[in-house]
Amino acid sequence: MFDLDGTLIDSAPDLGAAVDAMRVRRNLPSLLLSHYRPHTGAGARGMLHAAFDITPQHAEYELLKEEFFTAYRECMTQRTRPFEEVPELLVALLALGMRWGVVTNKAQRFTVPITQSMALFDTAAVVISGDTTPHAKPHPEPLLEASRRLALPPSACLYVGDDERDIRAGKAAGMRTVAATYGYLGTGSDVTEWCADAEISSPMQLLKLLKLP
């Protein structure tokens, strides 16, 4: 099972465009995608901090968050693409008889349109969004729900993600964990401190990690 943003797909261009449009509407200078990319893994919180230097405690945060969601919904499939090697990896896993799925903190209202816009996800055995269960990662419940839907014990599953909360959730669920270091990671992240079972710097490395042909 995989996290979505920063692990399977590069959604930073659309997320960055959405929040940057909010800056431009306020007569603030546009910022480069490279400014937003390191904050992408933190979702709306990260994007709003990058664009306006605010935190969820700010008085206008909730209003800005809803404005961001509206802007993102209008552009979320325009520039988002799978990371290089991801399509080949998923084809290889299927050829070996392995099922794969998605467990993301992204809300269903965004997850469904994005996954439906890419043929890549037609073969996913399960897709769990951030609001599919009452809890989001790092709580293990989304991963446990995925394993239930697959009728597999958590110990038979492996979870790949690019954020510390992915690894924490996977470990709490009793799954093996892999840190995708090619993802967003965030600023100042020390992946070794996450204590994942393994790390990969490109998607296809997962096959070698699993010792598959």
Rank of each mutant, 00 (worst) to 15 (best):
L185R: 14
C75H: 11
Y182F: 15
L150N: 09
T192D: 03
L120G: 02
L212A: 08
A146T: 10
Y159F: 15
L28P: 11
L90V: 02
G130Y: 03
E199N: 11
A180T: 13
I114Q: 03
D190Y: 09
P140M: 12
M175P: 05
L89S: 06
R37N: 05
C75N: 12
T187K: 15
A50K: 00
E85Q: 15
L150T: 09
A169Q: 07
I114V: 15
L143E: 01
H49D: 04
E164L: 06
Y182L: 14
I9Y: 04
A21Y: 07
R148C: 04
L209P: 02
L33C: 03
L4Y: 01
L90Y: 00
V160A: 07
H135A: 15
A125P: 06
G97L: 13
L206K: 14
L120V: 05
P113L: 06
G188F: 13
A146W: 10
D3V: 02
G101H: 04
V178M: 11
G183M: 08
L144R: 01
V86K: 08
P153H: 12
I128R: 06
T187E: 15
T80V: 11
L158K: 09
H58Q: 09
P203D: 12
A169T: 07
L93A: 06
L63M: 14
D163G: 04
D14V: 08
G101M: 04
E193D: 08
D131Q: 05
D14F: 07
M1C: 10
T192E: 04
A173P: 08
T132H: 04
P82W: 08
E145T: 13
G183F: 04
A42W: 00
F83V: 05
A50Q: 00
F68H: 03
L90E: 00
T80L: 12
W194K: 01
R149F: 02
V86M: 10
G6W: 06
D53L: 11
D163W: 03
R45F: 00
V126P: 02
S202L: 11
T132D: 02
L212E: 06
H139M: 10
R149I: 01
A169G: 09
K106E: 03
P82V: 07
F121R: 04
Y36L: 00
G186R: 07
P213Q: 10
A17R: 13
A18W: 00
F110P: 00
L31G: 05
E164W: 05
A173E: 02
G170I: 05
E193W: 01
P113R: 05
Y36M: 00
P87M: 07
W100S: 03
P87H: 06
E66L: 12
K211A: 14
M118H: 14
E145S: 10
L4E: 00
